[in-house]
């Protein structure tokens, strides 16, 4: 169970990115976070694993108050929170395998991992995870030689290597062709359904929300303006979240 209580984030330049946001995510949910660019979706996801330090409010994961932890304890907590990024954030010049193994770094002592040496068990898991994502033949290829969709699958593999309870996916399909979006979303859905990983995923397209999410929240100008089931987002709700000018678009 993830509880977000009265979360507020004010950037040093005075921008209020999140204003008193509270919600709960029961285990096993696939929660869609929707809203316009700049509505605070990315900030919200990054506040949960404290890549961005919240200004006030609390993040409670399975009874542990993450916002109260010292940095070393926070690092340990991050191991169970995977993250998937819009720009994939792979190390382009490293091999796919090294990128995937990097997901294990939180579990390894520094001195061992600095020489690019990972335990044999991790190697095995990495290859299995790649196979699961359909990339078994790409392990020794440089990351930047892959297509966008393949790179995002590597990103998911890296998150899965952490053996996470929760995955934060920040616009995972926004940089991809619409055709590839479904493939990536299906992999996330599999993580959710088969492994029981809770997923928080920010999305642009309502179609994808309807199809994959089990619940949804809407942000506008840093405030929570919607909380409910995806099916409940009717035209009025839509205009509330995206503004009067917005039009619904569909992809494939």
């Amino acid at each position: 169970m993830l509880k977000v209580e009265n979360l507020t984030k004010v950037y040093p330049n005075g921008t209020v990115a999140l204003r008193d946001v509270s919600f709960q995510v029961p285990d096993g949910e696939f929660l869609a976070v929707i809203g316009l660019s700049g509505s605070g979706k990315s900030t919200l996801l990054r506040c949960i694993n404290r890549i961005i330090e919240p200004t006030s409010g609390r993040i409670i994961l399975d009874g542990v108050d993450l916002t109260a932890l010292p940095p070393s304890e926070m690092r340990k907590q991050r191991r169970q929170i995977g993250m998937v990024f819009q720009q994939f954030n792979l190390v382009k010049r490293s091999s796919v395998l090294t990128n995937v193994l990097a997901g294990r770094l939180g579990y390894l002592p520094s001195y061992m991992s600095l020489a690019n040496h990972f335990p044999a068990a991790d190697h095995e898991t990495a290859l299995k995870t790649l196979a699961r994502l359909g990339l078994e033949d790409k392990a020794h290829v440089r990351a930047d030689s892959l297509s966008g969709g393949q790179q995002q699958r590597v990103g998911i593999a890296r998150a899965l290597m952490q053996d996470p309870k929760l995955i934060l996916a920040d616009e995972p399909v926004a940089s991809l062709d619409p055709v590839l979006s479904h493939s990536i979303m299906k992999h996330l859905e599999a993580c959710n359904k088969e492994d029981g990983i809770t997923i928080l995923c920010s999305l642009h397209f309502l179609d994808l929300v309807h199809r994959y999410a089990t619940s949804a929240i809407g942000l506008k100008g840093g405030q929570l303006v919607f909380q409910g089931l995806p099916q409940e987002i009717d035209d009025a709700q839509f205009k509330e979240i995206f503004g009067q000018e917005a039009e619904r678009v569909t992809i494939l």
Partner: peptide
Amino acid sequence: GPVEALTATGA
């Protein structure tokens, strides 16, 4: 990006 990603894994 990669720095952010690895920080997020707890490295």
